[in-house]
């Protein structure tokens, strides 16, 4: 099996007036072909920054400080001004022109808010034509429209609606169009940044189901960024829990949900309401995430952790192999 994406010790920092905040801190991940990785964590834990840095699109004043992102490409990409050979490519070493060719055709990114992600002045068909011609200027309009119709039909949108404008679509349909736009160039990797957060639960379920089907159909590798653990339990193969920019736990989905290792993961799972146990009191995690400009010493979670020990306030826990087949960064383990 080929590793589509390898992230090595990635560090992303935001420079603010108060100081430097490390949004992504030494994250290493490997993503095999056709796998779905779920990235979860509370707001501000760096999951979106991580997703964006995979396309080298960290918003200002963010900066990728060090690390490496290696993407595997299974065919040569050739365009007017240059080529990218197939094989492993380091995203961070590409220039703007090469990045533009990679974006969309190799890595697709789907945003959270479908209501504002489409240009109100362009019809849906024009969106598709323009994206395809940006990567291959030789494609004729009709040809591009045919492909657009094909993709839209597979997403359950009538082909004749390509002439309609974004305001004529509902939120769920717009998100389908966005997914279609992401998939029309047959990318290998799809990053979905909270794709269903702004949709209601029924549409959310439909879209997640469609995404699972499309994953099979288009042979996709996916990264699903969300703070909804239920979504991950349904769709992801592996789940990575992030806390203050670091990986807290990375494990196969079943193992993570049945046997969470990290106290933070456990607390997160506890704080999801359970309809089968109506009497259960809903747990919460006391305190708030630490200030990233002045982070606490040792483990970042120690001020909120019920199992905090002395060592947690002094030493940062390394990411070690856990008993359940995943990785965990906690002093509770590996000290026997």
């Amino acid at each position: 099996m080929v590793d589509v994406l390898r992230i090595k010790d990635l560090i992303v920092e935001y420079t603010t007036q108060r100081g430097t905040a490390r949004a992504v801190d030494r994250v290493s991940l490997t993503l095999g072909e056709n796998r779905t990785l779920g990235l979860a964590g509370e707001s501000g834990c760096g999951k979106s920054t991580l997703g964006r840095s995979l396309m080298k699109l960290v918003p200002y004043p963010g900066k990728i400080v060090s690390g490496d992102i290696i993407l595997n490409i299974d065919h040569d990409i050739t365009w007017k001004k240059g080529t990218i050979k197939k094989g492993d490519v380091s995203i961070l070493e590409l220039n703007d022109d090469q990045l533009r060719m990679i974006r969309g055709s190799e890595i697709a990114y789907i945003f959270q808010d479908p209501m504002t992600s489409l240009n109100p002045m362009l019809s849906i068909g024009k969106h598709f034509i323009q994206i395809q011609q940006a990567h291959d200027p030789t494609i004729e309009d009709e040809q591009a429209l045919e492909r657009a119709k094909e993709v839209l039909e597979s997403l359950g949108i009538l082909a004749e609606r390509v002439d309609d404008y974004p305001h004529q679509f509902s939120g769920g349909m717009r998100q389908r169009v966005m997914i279609g736009l992401g998939l029309v160039l047959r990318p290998r990797l799809l990053i979905a940044d909270e794709p269903t957060t702004s949709l209601d639960v029924i549409v959310e379920a439909q879209i997640l189901e469609e995404m699972a089907e499309l994953k099979e159909k288009f042979n996709l590798t996916m990264i699903l960024i969300t703070h909804n653990l239920g979504v991950l339990a349904q769709t992801a193969d592996d789940v990575a829990i992030m806390y203050t920019g670091r990986l807290a736990e990375l494990a196969p989905t079943e193992a993570l949900f049945e046997n969470p290792q990290h106290p933070y993961t456990e607390a997160l799972l506890q704080s999801v309401p359970d309809v089968t146990k109506p009497d259960k009191k809903l747990a919460w995690i006391p305190g708030a995430p630490p200030d990233l400009v002045n982070p606490p010493d040792g483990c970042m979670f120690n001020p909120r952790c019920p199992f905090a020990m002395d060592i947690c306030k002094q030493e940062e826990p390394p990411l070690i192999q856990s008993d359940t087949g995943g990785l965990v960064a906690c002093h509770l383990y590996g000290r026997s």
């Binding site: 699109l57 533009r100 969309g104 945003f111 489409l118 240009n119 992401g182």
Partner: peptide, 25 residues
């Protein structure tokens, strides 16, 4: 605006972003 960012993410050309996304708006 998100749709300009979405266009960048999908690898749109500079001239498309300028003349089809920004100028009409």
């Amino acid at each position: 605006l998100p749709y300009v960012e979405a266009a960048i993410v999908m690898g749109a050309r500079d001239r498309d972003i300028l003349f089809r996304y920004i100028l009409p708006n």
